[in-house]
Design a protein around this nucleic acid. Structure first.
Lengths: 138, 138
DNA sequence: TTGAATGCAAACGGTTTGCAGTTTC
DNA sequence: GAAACTGCAAACCGTTTGCATTCAA
């Protein structure tokens, strides 16, 4: 069908207590509408939104990504320094970063076995562990 | 003694085939002069250089960090997104990132055991594996 | 002497913000 | 109606760059 599905995205927002505005629903659909995980940047998401009938301003894309991120709906991944990347999958899992193309994909979590991890120093706890496997074309 | 030691830094530069200009030697000394590893940002290094008699312009700090990094003398660590961090220790090892203070320290490498790592996808090889343990105050 | 390195200031690029107008509840 | 959200444009801030000057070899 041609009509835009908005159910999943709306529920996703509701689960985080975020108001389902037109813009947020549109972005949420682009992010989780088909149930797949995605890696995006503000720029790529803005471009995707612009391709649709409902556009969303770049500033709102930034504000929304920040809001989603603070609500725990998405996670920011630090790989590039010049750009922010976000992942719709929020559990700890390793990433491949394709240095030549500057894009990010999930690495199979089952294939990563961490037998032991350094202890958190006194007075601190581990908030998250980022594992980024940087790839280069051979 | 009060005189500024410049031997180690000068040799360090020579080893990478970089000209030992006054500025580079000063920065190299600040980085490896005492044989200890350091985690720095352009800003912190510039501040440290300014505290000395020999100042170095901020642009030169940036250019120099880039040159050192390309020469393999230091390594850039991606943790913050808003700032670039560099490490004078260049082997693969895990880091603690103290989210509250925004600073970086080495995590004990012996305590990290990776039993298995995802395979590099066809046509690629692993350039490096970044492990960042993000800490939060309890 | 000559190519490389430096420093200043201006440019850059991704991100944030102030504020007026709009929308959700 | 009140509070939250949006969009525009301007501000921001770490970083890079153009170019004239200085320096190492």
């Amino acid at each position: 069908m041609l009509s835009i599905e908005t159910k999943r995205g709306t529920e996703w927002l509701a689960g985080a207590g975020l108001r389902p505005t037109r813009q947020r629903v549109a972005l949420a659909e682009l992010l989780v509408g088909d149930g797949q995980h995605r890696h995006i940047t503000a720029e790529s998401l803005h471009a995707a939104a612009t391709d649709q009938t409902d556009g969303v301003s770049l500033a709102t894309v930034y504000n929304t990504l920040k809001a989603f991120s603070e609500a725990g709906l998405i996670r920011e991944i630090m790989v590039d320094g010049t750009k922010s990347y976000f992942d719709t999958r929020v559990d700890d899992h390793p990433h491949f970063f394709w240095e030549d193309e500057g894009h990010l994909t999930d690495a199979p979590k089952e294939q990563l076995e961490i037998a032991s991890l350094p202890d958190a120093p006194a007075g601190t706890e581990i908030a998250k562990v980022d594992v980024v496997i940087r790839l280069r074309r051979t």
